[in-house]
Amino acid sequence: MSAVISAREEILACISSAGTKGAEDAAADYARIERSYRQAARLSHAATLDLLEERLHEYGARVFRVAESEIASLCARLLRERGARRIVVPAGLPEKWLAGAGSAAESTLEIVPDADFDAAALDSFDSVMTASTVAIAETGTIVLASAPDEGRRAITLVPDYHLCVVREGDVVETVVEGMRRLDAVKEMPLTLISGPSATADIEMTRIKGVHGPRFLDVAVVRA
């Protein structure tokens, strides 16, 4: 591997002889970067929640505002409407959220906690339900940060329908606020989701659902 090591040395030497500065000045210079863009929220929290709903609607996602106690019945209804048959859930998802879904007599819904399924096994699920870490109203973005009730990244990717629970307290107005909240979990695998999978590669027409989930429903839960 000596050739590779020498490439490293040579590239770093070229960089250093290109009139760049060393590590010692970096922190002080970094602190001088101007940041006069908007950093604080402008909207009330109620208006922020409305904005999130509006943005998610623009993406074609459905939004439901519910109390914590209503999650179970809402989820049961949504899964029924979407025709879900097999749903994968992260191991840490509160059980009570799905309490109503699998129990009804006529229900054929199978609720399966994630158990390191491989890709092919995941492909046998039509739905996934998770919580979330942060939601950004301005851009209609929901962030999953691999928390126990969000699970690993693959489970929210392969199934075609994602039902996501957002807690009101996790909703912020701006991208800046959102990213600052994420600083605490910045080394976790993060996925920022802004509407269902889409492409505009064909004549710049936005087409929903290429490879990721095509359907996204969001339950915004009152604290």
């Binding site: 943005r55 950004i136 691999s146 990244r153 976790m188 695998p189 920022l192 999978s197």
Partner: peptide
């Protein structure tokens, strides 16, 4: 021309059981 593109993935190195 989107406020945010549908997916941004940010991750660090190797995480057992995920990726």
């Amino acid at each position: 021309g989107e406020r945010m593109n549908p997916y941004n993935s940010i991750w660090t190195g190797v995480r057992p059981g995920d990726g």
